[in-house]
């Protein structure tokens, strides 16, 4: 086997042409997924069955199946349903980009909602009681006492999911999108040099992950300034 080190370096600029699409998929579905997760988490802790039951079923389905299957159902399956083709959803679903965003959002939303719920449940019950005894309303207690502490507790697990979402974006290459992974596959088919190309691709993903970890470490430190050893 001939291993061409120079190809690892020289393919990086080409791969980076897909970086923009990777970042778009990551940021947009990350933000939408977080909003969805907050909604699902609030439904889960609402204590009302008609809210938490649908949320639980949703979370079960999207955590319980491979994201690749979800992506294929959205991309290949939904367009076959006539009323979807005729509805406003079609604006999103007729483009593979829209399908990619939708699949990633729905999937990460399910995971992150459980992470947030863990954070909320980790806040000692006595703090809410102290707030109640002071006359704070339920909403005030949630915003000013529970949320800041829950966010701090959720950061490590959440950063994991953000990194995992970034890596999941590579799956959209299976639905014709030319993110970094999609471009890598094209280069491989032209050069027949899978090792070199995929190693370059790994390097790029690792750099992004490194930056993400650093950013979350800073955020965690800022949110932990009240914890003095």
């Amino acid at each position: 086997m001939n291993f061409d080190f120079s190809l690892i370096i020289s393919s990086i600029p080409q791969l980076l042409e897909g970086l923009g699409l990777t970042l778009q998929l990551w940021f947009i579905s990350g933000i939408l997924g977080l909003l969805l997760a907050i909604a699902l988490m609030l439904m889960r802790i609402s204590g009302k069955w008609f809210l938490y039951a649908p949320a639980m079923i949703y979370i079960y389905i999207f955590r319980g199946t491979p994201i690749l299957v979800q992506l294929f159902i959205i991309y290949h399956g939904l367009p076959q349903v006539e009323f979807i083709r005729e509805s406003f959803l079609w604006v999103v679903l007729r483009e593979p980009f829209g399908c990619g965003i939708l699949a990633l959002t729905l999937n990460t939303g399910a995971y992150v909602s459980e992470i947030l719920r863990g954070g909320v449940n980790g806040v000692p019950k006595g703090l809410g009681e102290a707030g109640a005894a002071l006359g704070l309303s339920k909403v005030q207690r949630f915003i000013y006492i529970t949320t800041p502490l829950a966010v701090r507790l959720a950061i490590p697990a959440y950063s994991n999911d953000v990194i995992s979402l970034m890596k999941s974006t590579a799956l959209v290459s299976t639905i014709t999108l030319l993110d970094m992974m999609g471009i890598a596959r094209i280069i491989v088919s032209e050069t027949y040099a899978p090792y070199e190309i995929f190693i370059s691709l790994m390097i790029i993903y690792l750099v992004i992950t490194w930056g993400t970890q650093k950013a979350f470490a800073l955020f965690e430190r800022r949110m932990s300034r009240h914890i003095i050893q």
């Binding site: 006595g126 703090l127 102290a130 707030g131 109640a132 005894a133 002071l134 914890i227």
Partner: peptide, 15 residues
């Protein structure tokens, strides 16, 4: 609750 203050065994200060 506005008229009644409460002190808890575990302080329950907002950390």
């Amino acid at each position: 609750r506005r008229e009644v203050g409460m002190v808890f065994q575990n302080f329950n200060l907002f950390p």
